[in-house]
Design a protein around this nucleic acid. Structure first.
Lengths: 109, 109
DNA sequence: CGCTTACGTAAGAATTTGCTTACATGTATG
DNA sequence: CATACATGTAAGCAAATTCTTACGTAAGCG
């Protein structure tokens, strides 16, 4: 699957967004992350897999634990994608306005 | 469903993102929108319902046609939500750095 | 009114998602 | 080595998503 596609889908789930918030500032082990939710530990493990595949978190192994933390680059790429989505719109709108101004100054008929 | 939730879910589908691009600059009737995709017209109609529910498009009836166009406010709200999602992260990171600078100047032990 | 046009809505099938419980794996520790 | 601990993986199930085809509906036209 296209990475940005995966990232958007990953972001569209509230549990996964909350996980991202939890590991924003410092890495946390899977178990501790899971302890913050009412659902089972394996369910959280699966969400972590989705986030990792989407490039939104990093995994690091330390002894018996697996530490997760938000992956800044992945988040930045997604942000950029979304910014462009809206910026393109604004750019086109701007060009439409400019075109109409030009046509007022120099009629083409 | 929480509106922002609906908006994120709506954005996570590629067909719906393409619809948003199609009706970015000017309103288009449902049929014309559908003609741009390989899937059936009712399928597009259902996607339009999802986008409308999420507050990402506006619908206007003109005779027998229904004209759709991107809803700027909805898009702006979603953009703001996502900006805050990342900005909060950066804010907290910033405060952590500042705290460490303060502690270097005025050791607390 | 009867017919066409441009749609939405209903029903159902296939696929994906999000969970559960049970089990497997890898790392430390006595 | 044996056991415990932290976690992933497998299997299965219910609900949601995304399609399809068939049908309903409202606006315009002769």
């Amino acid at each position: 699957m296209y990475v940005m596609e995966a990232a958007l889908k990953a972001m569209s789930n509230p549990t996964r967004r909350e996980i991202l918030r939890l590991v924003q500032n410092d890495e946390k082990p899977a178990g501790e992350i899971a302890s913050n939710f009412p659902i089972s530990r394996p369910a959280i493990s699966q969400h972590l897999t989705v986030l990792k595949f989407a490039g939104l978190i990093d995994e690091r192994r330390s002894g018996v634990k697996r530490l997760y933390r938000t992956r800044v680059e992945g988040m930045a790429e997604l942000k950029e994608f979304l910014d462009n989505f809206w910026d393109n719109r604004l750019e086109r709108l701007k060009s439409v306005i400019e075109a109409s101004e030009v046509s007022r100054m120099e009629p083409s008929w």
